[in-house]
Structure formats: structure tokens, C-alpha cells
Design a binder for these strands. Structure first.
Length: 748
DNA sequence: GTAGAGTGTCATTGG
DNA sequence: AACCAATGACACTCT
């Protein structure tokens, strides 16, 4: 076992040297590609090729190779794969690299600490460089990462870990861990692209020549690169090879109170470069940033900015040539710290890292609850290490076993978001899952937008005319219904209407023309039957609305309203009796009474005539007091009957409208829940990205002795200008405490 | 025979 | 004050 380990280590070192010889650098875009797949899954659906869990098996299955990670054939395997991948990557472009400017603020007071810019400390500065054509490595991410790591250490003049020979155990462990990390996290398909390495090589050359990084980008190299369209390592999106970081377009929508302009802008880009659905990605980012912004509103980051940020004019910290649509890169300079091969990788981090302290501190506040103890509580808002360093890295890259560090975005998610997630899950369990929502939508879509369909409306007319009238009236508001009923009842042409007027005038006309009576099917059918049985009564047709009602009270059939009926002599005697009985049954009580009292006009006239005409009509006849009283009662009851029908119909419409509103709200709720699920899912993946990238960056930091920094003692802090600072935890904790108080004060 | 829906009627209220 | 729409409540009929 020991020999195996040694063999592995030696093999890795040899491989690293090999990669460095051919100019391969490791870049963080490995993580970009490895982390974005989940986002793609959100948008495009799951893709087994990007499933993160498969990365663990990647080394055993890639390219058909079946090999155990500890196999002694590892170097052969890696070499073969690397060469193959390099060949494959020859025609690909690569994302511009990320520049990481970190300032070690504490460690040696007399040295060039905060503010100074050691020219040699640009471990993470990278650019495209033409890769050695002889050995472009595209596919072997693990070896590539490691190679880039050591290569950077060599090239950058920073204190590099021993490349061979006297490797300490920490070094070996770190190498092993980083190697495994790269494997586990997965690498992008174009991580080791040709153009990318070309840029890197160029930068490396310039660094060796003592050229400042910003000169590189502002000079010919940058222009030349700008002319070329680079392809995002993950998404394949083409964009100018500049140092852009035009995340401002995104973050502008998320204003932050206390942060200087550009602070937020730098870290978003990588996720926005998805070729398949960049807009969706941007939307997701906007959602994320909006949440973070809400939290950032409560936090003042000015303190940290004053303390640790490079001045605004600092070329290193502000050298983002923010070309639009090229938001990939983020400059993070790790001064006084050597960072292995983190070139553009940090750009992926940027969105999160930036937004955390910026939006900062607020977003992180939940991470370090005041009641938490020791380190966790002290990791402030801007203390990235405390937030992001996972136990894994702590145990491995850390010589002093530090306490377990909280989750990077744990504060974001753990408290508020997790509650929401749980609520959401609960809501889904309660029946608002997307499937049901979609079903609901289908159901509604089939409803033609009206809540009043036959199944829902027991009072709807069974006849086509009736249903149309009913649906139209139901679609209108109840107020319109009442107004329509009022208009119909107020109409002076009662004889033409002859119907109960609930619906509007036009509707009433349609209904009357079709039915000529009360707008309910039972009455209509009865009336029709009666009318066709006795054509002689067709003359009564407009006025027989009351006859059709169900309520036929047993009264003496003696009092037929003879005024509107043809002479009985025209009918045969046998059928005449039957028809009389039938008509008696069809007549209402008031009609029977009117007939009994020998009222000389129809009940319809009594009921529907306007007051003036009604009084005129009464004046034409010499009527007794009993007749007048009956006529007034008939009129009152008739009007009230119509009013009751209208009222009931209105009531039904109101109920149906409420039902439709409830269904609409349920549909909206289901949709919002779906959106929430997707948003939370993307947020979780962002969190994972931030965590892994933080680990990547921090794990590659080396002190002057070439040893990794202890996560328990140091933390990465995201400064307001986009740079990343390596500060001791105590300082970070103090800052965090200060920023914790501010939102509280603000709430007061 | 009973429950429930549909309808008519009365009393009341408010415009 | 008269008229009328709206509506709750009740009764009746029908299924």
C-alpha cells in the first residue's frame, strides 16, 4: 500500500512535470464545466453526461479505459488520455482566463502587505497562450489540473512547493487531494482547449518577462485576443477573448446600497455563457442576485472595503476591461501567496464570491449565526474561507486540523431558503406539484376561459341559445349582470321581450327570439309543447312566459284569459276540454286569478308594461277595486318573480366566478411553486459551485514556505473591488461581527 | 317517504 | 313618496 502510494505520487509528479513542459496549465474552468451541468439540467433536462455523481467514476470509464485510480498503469493511462485529449482540443477555443488578485493582508507586517503589488505575486493571472502543439491535453482533467498547479508554482516565482524529491507529506496529500478533487468535480469538455492554453502561455511568457498583467491585456495581446472569439470552456459560447466582466448588466438590476460600482459585477459571468440557453441562465442569475441583493441591503460592506480593498484606481484590482457579453473573467490577485494554476477558474467563482460579501455580507450573515461558536460564528460575512471551506479540504490541505467549516452558502440556504424549500415541499405534497399544476392548466385550458360550463353550471341552459346566453352572462361580472337585468326590466318594449330579463338587452333579444319566454329550458319546452299542440295559442306566445313555469296551482279552469285566446267555438269539443285542462295546468296562479276576476288584459302586460303605460291601460277599463288590487298584485308578483330569477342567476354566476378565480389562483400558485423549485435548485447548485471553487482557490494558496494555508487560520475575503484577499480569520471574524451588527441596527 | 333542486312568493331594504 | 330591483326566507312542486 505504501509503495503504491509512493508510486502514485511519483507518477503524478512526473505527469505534472510533463504537463508543465508542454505548457499545459490548469484552470478553474474545470469547475465551470463540471459545475454547470446541473444548471443545464434545470434548463434542458437531466443529462447523464453531466451528472456529477458520475465524475467519481469518470476516470475508470472515460475513453473506454477501465482502470483503477491506484493502478500502476496510471501514468500510462493519463499520458495516453492527455495526448488524445490534446489532439482533440487543437481546434477549440478556450475561455479567457481569470486573474486572481489576492492580497495577503496580515502576515508579515513589514513586507509588502496590503496595498502593495508585488509583481511576482500574480500566480493566478493568466491569459491565453498558445499551447504547445505537440502536446495539447484536453481530456485528462486530473492530470491537467495538477500539472497546471505545479506549473504555475514554478512559473510564477512564488514560493512553490517542492516539485520532486523532498516532497513533504502535506504536499503529497495536497496533490493527491487536488487530483481527486479535479476528478470528482469533473472537468469541462474544453478545459484544456488549445486556445485557452495559448492564452495562458502568452501570459506566462509575459510574466516571465516581468510584464505587468494589465499591460498584457491592454496591449497588443489583449487586442489580438479580442479579435478572436473564445469559446467558453463549459458552454461553448463564443465571446471576445478579453478580460471582460460585464456582469454589470446583470448586477445593475440588483443595486447594492453600500458597495462601490463594479463590486458586484465581476463574478457572475461564467454562468451566463451557456450557449443553449444563455437567457435562462441569466434569468437564474438575476433571481439569485435579487435574493442576495435583498440580503445585501441589510449589510454595509464599506468597512471591509476601506480596510482591505485596493484603491479604485488600482490597476490590478480594477483592470477589468468590461467588454459587453464577455463577462467571464475576474481578476483575483493573490499577492504574497502562490496560487497554483487557477487561471480562469476563479471567474466561475466570481459571481458567488462577489455577491456574497458584497451583497455581501448580508448573504453571509445567515451563515454565521450569532449563537454559533468559535470559528463558525466568527466567520463573517466576507470571510469566504470560513464559509466555503469544506471539511474535506480542511483535513487534507490543512496541516493543522481546523474545525469543520460551514457551508459556503449555507447561510443563504440553511435558514431562509431551507425553510422555503421545506414549505415548498410541503406545498407540493399538499397537491401543488408541477404535475398537478400542469394538469390543472390543461383542465383550464380546455375550459375556453369561462368558468361557466355545463358541468359547472347547473342552471345553465341546455339549449344552445341558453348556454350561450348563460356563458356570456357568466363571463361578465355580477355587477354587469345586475345592470343588464335592470336594463331588461326597464325596457319599455315588454311585449316584444316577453321574457325574464336577466341577461343584457342583446342577450335578451337573442333569448327571446329563440325562446320567446323565460330563459330556462324546462319552461321553454313546456311552452313549446303547449304551443304546438294548439296552434291557435301561438298568438299568446310572447306573453306566455309565466305559463311555462312549473308552479301550476290547481285552480278552477274556468278563467281562461279569453282576451288573447281565439273563440272556443273554433275547437272541437273533445279536444277543447283536454286543451283547456292542459292550459289550466300551464297557467300560473295569477293567471287563473286574473281569468277568474275577468281581467281584460294579459298578465304579461300587467307585469311588463312600464308604469305610465300600465296606468294608461288601467284607465282604459272600468275595473273594480278587487280587480285593481289583483292586477297590482299580479304585477308585483310577476316582477318579483323575474327579480328572483335574476337574483338566483346572479348568485350562481357569482359562485361560478369565484370558483374560476379560485382555480386561477391555484394555477398561479402551482406555477409559482414550480418556479420556486427551479430557482432553489439553481441556488443550490450555485452554492456548490462557490464551495468547490473556494476550495480550489484556497487549496492552491501557498505561503512563502510553499505550504498551504490553514483554513482555520486564514480565510479568503472578497473585496469590494472584486479582488480576493487572504486575511487571517481573526480579522475576518471581526469584520463579520461588525457587519452583523449593521443590519440589526438598520432594522431598528 | 324523503332529500334536494327548482321555482314562486313575501317581506324587506336600498337606490 | 312612489317605484323598483335585489335579496333572504319560506313554501311548494317535482324528481
Amino acid at each position: 500500500m505504501l509503495s503504491l502510494k509512493k508510486y502514485l505520487t511519483e507518477g503524478l509528479l512526473q505527469f505534472t512535470i510533463l504537463l508543465s513542459l508542454i505548457g499545459v496549465r490548469v484552470d478553474v474552468d474545470t469547475y465551470l464545466t463540471s459545475q454547470l451541468p446541473p444548471l443545464r439540467e434545470i434548463i434542458l433536462g437531466p443529462s447523464s453526461a453531466y451528472t456529477q455523481t458520475q465524475f467519481h467514476n469518470l476516470r475508470n470509464t472515460l475513453d473506454g479505459y477501465g482502470i483503477h485510480p491506484k493502478s500502476i498503469d496510471l501514468d500510462n493511462y493519463f499520458t495516453a488520455r492527455r495526448l488524445l485529449s490534446q489532439v482533440r482540443a487543437l481546434d477549440r477555443f478556450q475561455v479567457p482566463t481569470t486573474e486572481v488578485n489576492a492580497w495577503l493582508v496580515h502576515r508579515d507586517p513589514e513586507g509588502s502587505v496590503s496595498g502593495s503589488q508585488p509583481s511576482s505575486g500574480l500566480a493566478l493571472e493568466s491569459s491565453s497562450g498558445l499551447q504547445d502543439v505537440t502536446g495539447p491535453d484536453n481530456g485528462v482533467r486530473e492530470s491537467e489540473t495538477e500539472q497546471g498547479f505545479s506549473e504555475d508554482l514554478e512559473d510564477l516565482g512564488a514560493v512553490a512547493p517542492p516539485v520532486s524529491g523532498d516532497l513533504t507529506k502535506e504536499d503529497i496529500d495536497l496533490i493527491d487531494i487536488l487530483w481527486r478533487q479535479d476528478i470528482d468535480l469533473g472537468a469541462g469538455r474544453e478545459i484544456f482547449d488549445y486556445s485557452h492554453r495559448q492564452k495562458e502561455q502568452d501570459v506566462d511568457k509575459e510574466l516571465q518577462d516581468g510584464t505587468e498583467q494589465e499591460d498584457t491585456w491592454s496591449g497588443e495581446g489583449a487586442e489580438a485576443l479580442a479579435r478572436n472569439l473564445l469559446v467558453d470552456g463549459e458552454t461553448g459560447e463564443s465571446f471576445p477573448a478579453q478580460f471582460p466582466a460585464d456582469i454589470s448588466s446583470i448586477t445593475e438590476a440588483v443595486p447594492s446600497e453600500s458597495e462601490p460600482p463594479g463590486l458586484q459585477n465581476n463574478l457572475l459571468s461564467p454562468l451566463l455563457t451557456g450557449t443553449e440557453s444563455p437567457f435562462d441562465l441569466e434569468q437564474q442569475w438575476q433571481d439569485l442576485m435579487s435574493i442576495m441583493e435583498m440580503q445585501a441591503m441589510e449589510v454595509n460592506t464599506s468597512t471591509s472595503e476601506i480596510l482591505y480593498n485596493a484603491p479604485p484606481g488600482d490597476p490590478l484590482s480594477t483592470n477589468y476591461s468590461l467588454a459587453p457579453n464577455t463577462p467571464i473573467n475576474q481578476n483575483v490577485s493573490l499577492h504574497q501567496a502562490s496560487l497554483g494554476g487557477c487561471s480562469q477558474d476563479f471567474s466561475l467563482f466570481s459571481p458567488e464570491v462577489e455577491s456574497l460579501p458584497v451583497a455581501g455580507s448580508s448573504a453571509l450573515l445567515p451563515l454565521a449565526p450569532s449563537n454559533s461558536t468559535s470559528l463558525n460564528s466568527t466567520f463573517g460575512s466576507t470571510n469566504l474561507a470560513g464559509l466555503f471551506f469544506p471539511p474535506q479540504l480542511n483535513g487534507t490541505a490543512n496541516d493543522t486540523a481546523g474545525p469543520e467549516l460551514p457551508d459556503p452558502l449555507g447561510g443563504l440556504l440553511d435558514e431562509a431558503m431551507l425553510d422555503e424549500i421545506s414549505l415548498m415541499d410541503l406545498a407540493i405534497e399538499e397537491g401543488f406539484n408541477p404535475v398537478q399544476a400542469s394538469q390543472l392548466e390543461e383542465e383550464f385550458d380546455s375550459d375556453s376561459g369561462l368558468s361557466l360550463d355545463s358541468s359547472h353550471s347547473p342552471s345553465s341552459l341546455s339549449s344552445p341559445e341558453g348556454s350561450s346566453s348563460s356563458s356570456s352572462s357568466s363571463s361578465s361580472s355580477s355587477s354587469s349582470s345586475s345592470s343588464s337585468s335592470a336594463s331588461s326590466s326597464a325596457s319599455s318594449s315588454f311585449s316584444e321581450e316577453g321574457a325574464v330579463g336577466y341577461s343584457s338587452d342583446s342577450e335578451t333579444l337573442d333569448l327571446e327570439e329563440a325562446e320567446g319566454a323565460v330563459g330556462y329550458q324546462p319552461e321553454y319546452s313546456k311552452f313549446c309543447r303547449m304551443s304546438y299542440q294548439d296552434p291557435s295559442q301561438l298568438s299568446c306566445l310572447p306573453y306566455l312566459e309565466h305559463v311555462g313555469h312549473n308552479h301550476t296551482y290547481n285552480m278552477a279552469p274556468s278563467a281562461l284569459d279569453s282576451a288573447d285566446l281565439p273563440p272556443p267555438s273554433t275547437l272541437k269539443k273533445g279536444s277543447k276540454e283536454k286543451q283547456a285542462d292542459f292550459l289550466d295546468k300551464q297557467m300560473s296562479r295569477d293567471e287563473h286569478r286574473a281569468r277568474a276576476m275577468k281581467i281584460p288584459f294579459t298578465n304579461d302586460k300587467i307585469i311588463n308594461l312600464p308604469v305610465e303605460e300600465f296606468n294608461e291601460l288601467l284607465s282604459k277599463y272600468q275595473l273594480s277595486e278587487a280587480q285593481l288590487s289583483l292586477i297590482r298584485d299580479i304585477r308585483r308578483r310577476g316582477k318579483n318573480k323575474m327579480a328572483a330569477q335574476n337574483c338566483r342567476k346572479r348568485k350562481l354566476d357569482t359562485i361560478l366566478n369565484l370558483e374560476r378565480d379560485v382555480e386561477d389562483l391555484q394555477r398561479d400558485k402551482a406555477r409559482l411553486l414550480r418556479e420556486k423549485v427551479e430557482f432553489l435548485r439553481s441556488l443550490r447548485q450555485m452554492k456548490q459551485k462557490v464551495q468547490s471553487l473556494y476550495q480550489e482557490v484556497f487549496g492552491r494558496l501557498r505561503d512563502e514556505n510553499g505550504r498551504p494555508y490553514s483554513p482555520s487560520q486564514y480565510a479568503l475575503q472578497y473585496a469590494g473591488d472584486g479582488s480576493v484577499l487572504l486575511i487571517p480569520r481573526t480579522l475576518a471574524d471581526q469584520q463579520a461581527r461588525r457587519q452583523e451588527r449593521k443590519p440589526k441596527d438598520r432594522r431598528k
